[in-house]
Every structure is written in C-alpha cells, then in structure tokens.
C-alpha cells in the first residue's frame, strides 16, 4: 500500500512490519492490535493504557451518536406527522 513517505513529520516505525505512524500512541495501538505476541511487558502496559484511554473517547462518541440517532428518530417522526397525510 502506498504511504506518503515525503511527509516532513515524525515517523514512528513498527519494528515488526515497518509500517509508519505519525504519533507514538498510534504505533502503540497498532502493535497491540496487529502484533500482540511481539510485545514486551512495558509495551503491554502502554497498550493497555492507550486502549482504555481510547475506550473513554469511544464512550463519549457513543453518547453523542446516540443523541444524533434520537434526534433523527424524533425529527423524522415530527416531519412525518406534519407532511405525510
């Protein structure tokens, strides 16, 4: 897969598959998800931390998404009441 190799940014390389990531956190998440057997103890700890941090972000995203779904539901309910006859 083509990646943008000329980007003037920090490159965090995965030592198992040489894939590059722009931040250390993304590299930690990548190694945890793709090469779980190649991690040492500190990496496992870092992955766990990054994973739970992301879990919190996901939780807040889910609440917002649920809000949008509720709005869509009631919004369409109102539209159907007003315009469908």
């Amino acid at each position: 897969m083509t990646t943008d190799t000329d980007a003037p940014r920090d490159r965090h390389l995965c030592e198992t598959c040489t894939e590059a990531y722009p931040t250390a956190r993304l590299l930690v998440l990548h190694r945890g998800a793709r090469h779980p057997d190649a991690l040492d103890a500190t990496e496992i700890e870092a992955y766990r931390e990054a994973y739970y941090e992301e879990e919190r972000e996901l939780k807040s995203f889910r609440i917002r998404a649920l809000g949008v779904l509720v709005l869509l539901y009631f919004g369409f309910l109102m539209l159907f009441i007003m315009y469908a006859s």
Partner: peptide, 25 residues
Amino acid sequence: LSVPRWLYLATGGATVGASALLASF
C-alpha cells in the same frame, strides 16, 4: 399514506446515515 417525495428521499438517506452510526457502535 402519501409521503411527499422529499421526505421519502430524506428518509432513505437518513436510513443509510443512521445505520453507519449504528455500525460505529
């Protein structure tokens, strides 16, 4: 039940959008 065309189209679009949100769960 007669549904105006714009509402039928919007409902179709919203179904796809809502299912993308659901998939993201």
